[in-house]
Design a protein around this nucleic acid. Structure first.
Length: 551
RNA sequence: AGCGGGGUGGGGAAGUCAGGUCAUCCCGGCGGGCUCAUAACCCGCAAAUCAGUAGUUCAAAUCUACUCCCCGCUACCA
């Protein structure tokens, strides 16, 4: 394991609230991984930023009668607050509209331009005279020339799935008027020249997911096309060239550069040489499967174009999308759950536990189901894990006045239990290193389940021989659980630590510490109480009916 | 249309890349136990020709070919 790491997650677009889908695929896996790396002594920094520029934000801010800056400032704060409430702990959360990022993007553009990766081309684009705007693809709707479906985007027909050469009967999606076609000058990035290098990089990087690699290789094989990197709107990073007044960069040219500019700002402020750190660290970009194209091709080709001044990603953990009760999340149909809203119902750790446990390390979609959530919380988190901790600590309190007793000679069951503790750090850790967070969590649950069995079979309540060993090992296993759980459920983990009567915080331990027996006979436990409250089915029914179109 | 991923006891999933050690886990059903614990926990039972067909192999849920279903992506949705 590299002793330095920079972790990023896809930048939240600053035009709406964070919902369960966002955190499931990107922010939570990144946060869990960062916490794990930090426990392992890795100097790891998790940085993120709001993605502030682009046409949708410009249009929405106009509708709300705000300036774009006011508008994005609002969402930047709101997103950060929501993340914080969910215990997503960024080392630094910044914005793509920061002066540092704007300067960085312009500098990158100049370098790419100087080395011949950029060219200008006149193109013809839809223009709406009524709205006074050039209309990017998404803002023109019309009839699909293949299947005659109406009201389709000009760049993709949702009915037949085909990409029209030219849409029939085009309309401006803002005002409904037919747009005109106007000539405009745009800048293009020579993505085509990077095909071979991208392909080589994909093959050579063994950390990337196989299925994603295949997917990207397919794109490369079928032929890349040069990439239009500018737009004619007033809200973005200005193109720093004479004659390019009024033009800004396309959002995907500037937003991922904020990974670097944000990290540089953070590190330099800390007195660390940012570039040096970046190039000697493991770079992780956590994303959802919808932006594979941008991260595997745009982002990487730009770094290649800069001749690796900033190294390419080592890991791009790519996960699928969350569906809700089996259906695609959709804000317009009110088929989504806001993060803030969810946290008004249940503690952050419930959601963290549930989302990690259903989320594999793959592009497969995962499903949020209220009934499934209920059983997983009630029977696994509470019935298995919470129950073991509660009985271990409660029994010690009751029978030994909270003082860990002297041990005797271990019998076979004790030795097996001891072995489990000794192996836990490696068993769980190796899965974490491979990004299999769901399996790692499952290992923790197996550990806890084993201790429920152990406790049962030792029957300490009969107070026969071996009772002291059972208590000693169970209390130590509880401590192990607290450390192992920390990346997943930090609040509960700290609570267990307190109940164990241990000093400081879980955060100050190292990962491998969980496999040692650091609670010795004579140790006095703190106050204990059940960690979790069960999920009530009647509440769940209410939450279910809150979904879907309002009455 | 192209590309990608799936179909595993009644429900939900893991296992498939590296074939045998494998049919596992959670819920549900049935029977028993225990009482430290949040009607929790522990033990046992019933229930799957691992979508279908053909093939490779001493051996297939796992590899190959074809077929039938489902889902996702396709360049401004995490």
């Amino acid at each position: 394991m590299n002793n330095k790491a920079i972790i990023t997650s896809a930048l939240p677009y600053a035009n709406g609230e964070i919902h369960l889908g966002h955190v499931a695929s990107t922010y939570l896996p990144a946060d869990v991984t960062t916490r794990f790396l930090k426990l392992n002594g890795v100097e790891a920094y998790y940085v993120c930023a709001s993605d502030d520029f682009g046409t949708p934000i410009l249009i929405q801010s106009e509708k709300e009668g705000k300036t774009p800056s006011e508008y994005v400032a609002h969402w930047n704060k709101r997103d950060y607050d929501d993340f914080t409430a969910f215990n997503i702990k960024f080392d630094f959360f910044y914005k793509t509209s920061s002066p540092e990022n704007i300067a960085f993007v312009q500098d990158v553009f100049k370098k790419l331009n100087d080395s011949g990766h950029i060219y200008q081309k006149e193109i013809i684009q839809f223009y709406c005279k009524n709205d006074n705007k050039f209309l990017p693809d998404r803002y023109v709707k019309g009839v699909c020339p293949y299947c005659m479906a109406e009201d389709q985007y000009s760049d993709l027909c949702e009915k037949c799935g085909r990409v029209p050469e030219e849409i029939t009967d085009p309309k401006c999606s803002l005002c409904g008027q037919p747009p005109t076609k106007e000539k405009t000058n745009h800048y293009f990035y020579r993505l085509t020249t990077f095909g071979n290098d991208l392909s080589k990089w994909l093959d050579g990087n063994e950390h990337l997911q196989k299925d994603v690699k295949k997917y990207v290789q397919n794109w490369i094989t079928s032929g890349l096309i040069d990439w239009d990197i500018t737009r004619d709107i007033p809200w973005g990073v200005p193109v720093p060239l004479e004659g390019a007044e009024g033009k800004v960069f396309y959002g995907w040219f500037d937003n991922h550069l904020a990974y670097i500019s944000t990290a540089m700002k953070f590190l330099d402020d800390k007195g660390i040489n940012g570039k040096e750190f970046w190039n000697s660290a493991d770079i992780y970009h956590f994303i959802g499967k919808d932006i594979v194209y941008h991260h595997y091709l745009f982002l990487t080709s730009m770094r290649l174009g800069l001749q690796n001044e900033y190294k390419l990603p080592d890991f791009i953990p790519t996960r699928g999308h969350l569906t809700l009760q089996g259906k695609k999340i959709s804000k317009s149909r009110n088929w989504y759950i806001g993060l803030k809203q969810f946290l008004e119902y249940y503690p952050a750790d419930y959601l963290r536990f549930y989302l990690v446990s259903i989320n594999p390390y793959s592009q497969d979609d995962l499903n949020f189901d209220w009934d499934d959530f209920t059983t997983r919380i009630n029977s696994e988190l509470i019935g298995n894990l919470g129950n073991f901790i509660n009985r271990a600590l409660g029994f010690t309190k009751k029978t030994f006045e909270g003082i860990v007793p002297e041990t005797e000679k271990f019998d076979e069951k004790d030795s097996e239990a001891e072995k489990r503790i000794n192996c836990l750090a490696t068993d769980v850790g190796s899965l974490m290193e491979q990004n299999h967070l769901d399996r790692a969590l499952k290992k923790i649950m197996e550990f806890s389940s084993h201790f429920n069995q152990y406790f049962q079979h030792k029957e300490p309540w009969k107070k026969g021989p071996g009772t002291a060993n059972c208590v000693f090992l169970s209390v130590n296993a509880t401590r192990s659980l607290a450390i192992a759980m920390f990346p997943f459920m930090p609040e509960s983990s700290e609570e267990i630590w307190k109940q164990l009567g241990l000093e400081e915080t879980v955060e100050n331990n190292s990962w491998k510490d969980m496999s040692e027996m650091k609670i010795h006979p004579g140790h006095i436990l703190g106050e204990s109480a059940p960690l979790f409250v069960k999920v009530e089915k009647t509440d769940i029914e209410k939450h279910k009916t809150g979904l879907g179109p309002a009455e």
